[in-house]
């Protein structure tokens, strides 16, 4: 009885081993391609929010300690000085969660932003200009007429990004 189940178990594990080996081989070939794709995607979206981003002179690293969902640090290759911090933050709007990518420079000014995902029913918040570029506070925020809740959520995203930046890099750490 025990012998029988042992045989069964070993048959199953042989199959599992063969399959795992096969997966390992495929992974060996595909993983560099996948990684390259991911990096390219990050670079593409960063260049959208940081108009001055240049892949030849700047490096991208991720900050795992940050409070935000995802944080990218853009620093200069030569001096290793931190130039931009890019946050991906989200807030709840009228009918969906709005996810935004916001880039903050060393003077805590917003250099660019992009609404990554939203399924709001009214108004085109993806292309609306919220008048926040170059600003370091929320005074200049321009509400999108007709969609109060969506605008509130966008405003909250900016607030979060600015507060994270000030919190995490205040006190000369930068």
């Amino acid at each position: 009885m025990i012998k029988k189940s042992l045989i069964t178990a070993s048959v199953l594990s042989i199959f599992a081993l063969i399959c795992a080996a096969l997966l390992g081989v495929v992974n060996f070939f595909t993983s560099p391609v996948i990684k390259a794709h991911e990096e390219e995607n990050i670079k593409k979206s960063i260049s959208l929010v940081c108009p001055l981003y240049d892949s030849n002179t700047m490096d991208i690293t991720t900050n795992e300690d940050s409070k935000a969902k995802t944080t990218y640090l853009v620093s200069s290759k030569e001096t290793e000085e931190l130039l931009y911090v890019i946050y991906i933050v989200d807030a709840t709007g009228y009918a969906s969660t709005i996810e935004m990518m916001i880039s903050v420079d060393k003077d805590y000014k917003i250099t660019g932003y992009k609404v990554l995902s939203s399924a709001e029913t009214k108004g085109d918040i993806k292309s609306h200009d919220f008048n926040m570029i170059g600003s370091n506070n929320l005074d200049s925020f321009d509400t999108l007429a007709g969609s109060t809740y969506s605008s509130k959520a966008v405003k909250k995203c900016f607030k979060l990004a600015l507060s994270y930046a000030k919190e995490e890099f205040e006190g000369g750490q930068k």
Binding site: T8, V11, L12, F15, A16, C19, L22, L23, V26, N27, F29, T30, S31, V33, I34, H37
Partner: peptide, 24 residues
Amino acid sequence: PVRIAVYIVIIATLVTVVEMLMEA
């Protein structure tokens, strides 16, 4: 006795291969 498990292992492997290839 374990044929369903074996089949699932084989199918899962093939699906993962397809997934990796497609992602790449």
